[in-house]
Amino acid sequence: MQGGLTQGLGYALHEEVTFTPEGEVAQQGFETYRLPQAGDTLPIQVDLYEGAPSMGPLGAKGAGEIPILNVAAAVACAVANATGSRVQALPLTPPRVLDLLCGESEALDLGRIAEDW
């Protein structure tokens, strides 16, 4: 479980692929693509609650991907609550959080989605 949460923190805070002006991927290795390591996290207590059954093919349930997906949403909600601004892009790098604090983040064009959705 700890590994999935650490991976989720990477998705929420660090991992991003960017491109050079020539259109090449800027991160060519782990020297430039930051992955979280065990030392980046603190011990986490997890309380599991059985919910409605969600059975997949052959009776299988998802396990590994579940903690990864929720971490980014939880971090984004916490940052939105703290800054009073809508979080619209991940990862939440320090410059992006500073833009949220200063009110300088650009709104995404979501014209196809109703504003009150």
Rank of each mutant, 00 (worst) to 15 (best):
M1I: 08
L5V: 15
G10N: 01
G10C: 01
Y11C: 00
A12Q: 08
A12W: 13
L13H: 04
H14Q: 13
E15M: 10
E15L: 12
E15N: 05
E15Y: 06
E16A: 11
E16M: 12
E16F: 02
E16D: 08
V17L: 09
T18G: 05
T20Q: 06
P21T: 07
G23N: 11
E24R: 15
E24L: 14
V25C: 06
Q27S: 04
F30W: 06
E31S: 12
E31T: 13
T32A: 12
T32R: 14
T32Y: 02
Y33K: 02
Q37M: 08
Q37K: 11
Q37V: 12
A38G: 08
G39H: 05
G39E: 11
D40K: 07
L42N: 13
P43G: 06
I44V: 15
Q45E: 15
V46G: 11
D47W: 04
D47N: 03
D47P: 00
L48R: 14
Y49F: 02
G51D: 09
G51C: 10
A52I: 03
A52L: 03
A52S: 11
P53C: 00
S54L: 07
S54H: 14
M55F: 06
P57I: 07
P57M: 06
P57F: 08
G59L: 09
G59R: 13
G59Y: 07
G59S: 01
G59P: 03
A60S: 15
A60M: 13
K61Q: 09
K61H: 08
K61E: 03
A63S: 13
A63T: 14
A63H: 03
G64E: 12
G64S: 15
I66L: 09
I66D: 01
I66W: 02
I66R: 04
P67K: 07
I68Q: 14
I68K: 12
L69M: 09
N70G: 14
N70L: 14
V71R: 10
V71F: 07
A72C: 07
V75I: 15
A76S: 14
A76W: 10
C77M: 08
A78D: 03
V79A: 05
V79L: 02
A80N: 11
A80L: 10
N81M: 04
N81C: 03
A82M: 11
A82Q: 14
T83E: 00
S85R: 15
V87T: 00
V87P: 03
Q88F: 08
A89L: 12
A89G: 10
L90M: 12
T93H: 10
P95V: 09
V97T: 08
L98G: 05
L98K: 09
D99S: 14
D99T: 11
L100R: 10
C102F: 05
E104A: 03
E104P: 00
E104S: 05
E104R: 15
E104C: 01
E106I: 00
E106N: 05
A107R: 14
L108S: 11
D109M: 00
D109E: 13
D109K: 12
L110K: 13
G111K: 06
G111D: 12
R112M: 11
I113Q: 01
I113D: 01
I113G: 00
A114P: 04
A114N: 13
E115W: 02
E115P: 11
E115G: 07
W117N: 10
W117C: 07
W117F: 15
